[in-house]
Amino acid sequence: MQNPYETVALLKERKEEREKIDQVLPDLAKINIQEQLLVPQPADESLYREMMHLTPARIGVWRTGTRPLTRTMLRFRADHALAQDSVLGMVPEEFASAHGLLPIQTQVENKEQYLTRPDLGRKLSLEARETLTKGGTAACQVQVVVADGLSSKAIGANIPDLLPALMQGLAHYGFIIGRPIFVKYGRVACMDEIGEILHPESLVILIGERPGLGTAESLSAYMAYKPHRSMLESERSVISNIHRGGIPPLEAGAHLASLMKQILASKASGVRY
């Protein structure tokens, strides 16, 4: 018969082994590729490493034959997967109510139509127009609008921090703020029709950007003084690159509030501002 202490030790060892197998592989997308030099015997390793920090481009990746190494290929695909999921994914239905937003929809009926008919993403549905008339705030000083745009992930990642910071900032300046709105399948210019229905003095729309491989969570803010449908693109002010690795959402909220204050003071936005 085996010594019971040995059995316990053996069982422990087996458990540890099992746990090792159960362990999840390290997150591929978390590796800093600027730190990862894969060239086996470079002519000048230290200068190569220095050079890799001067660009976010995927260099120093090496090859097998003429093809990329497996880890480089998988990392690329992982970044693209995140970008695609973000474009094709939806902002959850309960998101609007959870953040106190009045939900409306453009004339777009589904994702495919959203991607192929940018014109419909600029127009509100009949129902949306009614919802705004009944539930929206008429003639406020600042109207805040959130729209999914081309990145559902940008909304989930930034709005929970950005929106309260922006609302607090606007309240701090003493502005009359309209009830914030969420637009499903929205393009930037859907702000123009909202402007014509509710007549806010100024409007800011927070909208998901087309994802790159670097980040899928980037958000843009377009601002306009008295938005209307015949306004020019150049009459909108814009701040882009809002995400954890760019302008962080909390800071963006405070910054946008001060920009809205300036727009209201100068009674103009975009190139006129």
Binding site: T55, R58, D79, H80, L213
Partner: peptide, 12 residues
């Protein structure tokens, strides 16, 4: 382009 990822124009 390095790995086909354009880090400025954001396309592949």
């Amino acid at each position: 382009i390095p790995m086909g990822d354009d880090v400025m124009l954001n396309y592949q």
